[in-house]
């Protein structure tokens, strides 16, 4: 439960309320897997669960894309190179990358808002081991064009063969020439074989529910759909009870769940 204190190597402002912090961790207790998270501690302010958004091939380089929304994450927006941050982790379940590689199925990534961050390690890994995977389709919805994360990388990713990247924003002023709409529009228009696709979904819970409806309409079995859940996390080890979601501890059994295991629970209010 004791954090490792590590100096920030690089702090990169992504958007008005989002920053990516890179930490060089000399001794991670385990290499992280795409989809896992760390508990980040800001001196005196407290801890927040933040997914790891770097490349799994570099287990010592911990990248975290953080949106400033709470008592810990707001001041983290002001963190600078050299500041020491506490890290515990990696914790939690991972995206089913091995299964995707083994089955040769296409990967359909559905990201909403900050939800692109936990999926970025998947993109890195698929591009690095390109031949092991089928097609990669990334559909990404954000609030406004100014809220889009990783803009340079989005442009680079779509240059790779077999990779499709589509964006949409909820609202835009004149000057934006991209799509204004929602992620289910992208999903409705996307071309993929429902039987040969694994969908990884990360974003606000309601956005994931809408995506699940549309995926079901397209004929993708919930057994081929994975969701990354968010709940209040304090200990990350299943002791504190805060992240309970009916039978699950989201910190330990999640955050990544196969959709068929949690879909019936998602419709129950205040569970």
């Amino acid at each position: 439960m004791l954090p490792r204190f590590i100096a920030i190597r690089r702090a990169l402002r992504e958007t008005a309320d989002t920053i990516t912090l890179e930490l060089e961790d000399p001794n991670p207790p385990a290499p992280f897997a795409a989809g896992q998270f760390n508990m980040l501690y800001l001196f005196g302010a407290g801890e927040a669960a933040i997914s790891i958004s770097g490349a799994p091939e570099r287990p010592n380089l911990l990248a975290h894309t953080i949106r400033g929304v709470g008592a810990v994450t707001m001041p983290l927006l002001r963190a600078r190179r050299g500041d020491a941050i506490g890290v515990r982790g990696p914790y939690g379940s991972a995206w089913p990358l091995q299964e995707a590689a083994r089955s040769g199925r296409d990967l359909l990534l559905l990201a909403g808002g900050i939800g692109l961050a936990p999926l970025r390690p998947v993109i890195y890994e698929v591009l690095r081991r390109r031949r092991e995977f089928g097609r990669l389709i990334v559909l990404y919805g954000a609030r406004t064009p100014q809220d889009l994360l990783y803009r340079k990388e989005l442009a680079q990713w779509r240059m790779h063969p077999g990779v499709t990247v589509k964006l949409t924003v909820d609202r835009a002023a004149a000057g934006w020439s991209g799509r204004v709409g929602v992620i289910t529009d992208l999903l409705r228009a996307a071309e993929f074989d429902p039987a040969e696709t694994i969908a990884l979904v990360c974003g606000p819970e309601v956005m994931m529910r809408f995506c699940c409806h549309e995926l079901a309409r397209r004929g993708v079995s919930p057994r081929q759909v994975y969701l990354s859940m968010e709940r209040n996390m304090k200990c990350a080890a299943g002791f504190c009870g805060h992240c309970q979601f009916s039978p699950f501890f989201v910190c330990r059994d999640g955050p990544v769940f196969r959709a068929d295991r949690i879909l019936p629970l998602l419709g129950i209010r205040e569970l």
Partner: peptide, 19 residues
């Protein structure tokens, strides 16, 4: 129907800070 769904989702403003 699809346009209405789009509008409803936009109305929810799912990605605003504070969920």
């Amino acid at each position: 129907h699809t346009r209405l769904e789009r509008t409803r989702m936009q109305l929810l403003d799912l990605y605003r800070a504070g969920g």
